[in-house]
Amino acid sequence: MDLLFKVFIDPFLQMGAMPDLLVQTLWEGLVSGVLYALIALGFVLIFKASGVFNFAQGIMVVFAGLTLVGLHEKGVPAWLAVLLTLGVMLALAVAVERVVLRPLVNQPDIILFMATFGLTYVLIGIGEFIFGGEPKQMITEELGLPRGAIDVAMLGGRVTFQKIDIAAAVIASIMIAALAVFFQYTRIGRALRAVADSHKAALSVGISLNQIWAIVWFAAGIVALITGIMWGARSDVSFALQTIALKALPVLILGGFTSIPGAIVGGLIIGIGEKLAEFYWGPLVGGGIENWIAYVIALGFLMVRPQGLFGDKIIERI
């Protein structure tokens, strides 16, 4: 009886007793969720274009962040460093298309997936060789990102909004909207959707598969850079950051691997869900549940919608 009370009643009593903490938890979840959505978007773009789950997305976040900070350490002004980093991510996209993807055209998806594993370790090696393994501080101030916090007295307590979190939420939202519009309404976006439907049909109408792949990998690189800046500003830029990117996995399970709205909604559900779960139900089992509860939430949704919230329902003729 006591356990039932602790699971089903007490957390809600806590929410009512300390509503300021509930708002703070929801805000933390929202910021995390938007960032998860941004990471998930990087996966979705590549999956839509090539049917490949890009395991290297996490290290791309680290690589982009380290390149930016590394260039700035060499004396390159912050915004020029951003442009140069974008150039590096473009070069990486072209190189991946030429060296990894093009030779593997028509190979089973699992081969391409394994190739992204290889790419992950190559990027880790190159990153550590060039930048070393030490964590680096994001150049938040130099990029003009806001610092400090806004304390708001509300609901009998206080809620703190970090300015960098507000900026992260706003920038990530703009980025997501821009990418959604780009891929929904532009010629390249339509070409991407055609490639996603069928490589052969897209090729037959003159769409260059190689060009589309380079574009989506570059778009994923831009997403990686924004994520690296934002998450790097919240903690720091280190190789540990790549594990955060794997948080996109339950987001993708939930939202579907091919849906941009799915990545957004999935990210928010996972971000807010895991924070609420850790804060209100975590103490019942000694805490530390945030790491796996995201998968429980995703699996719960899968039981109702196996294709994910926004995933395409695959019907095959047999």
Binding site: Q24, T25, S32, T243, G286, G287, E290
Partner: peptide, 22 residues
């Protein structure tokens, strides 16, 4: 009070510190 931080969450401690505040 114990506040475990899984290795995968090392850079994502937001809810742990909210618990400390609570």
């Amino acid at each position: 009070k114990l506040y475990p931080v899984p290795a995968a969450q090392m850079q994502n401690q937001g809810s742990v510190w909210l618990s400390i505040r609570r």
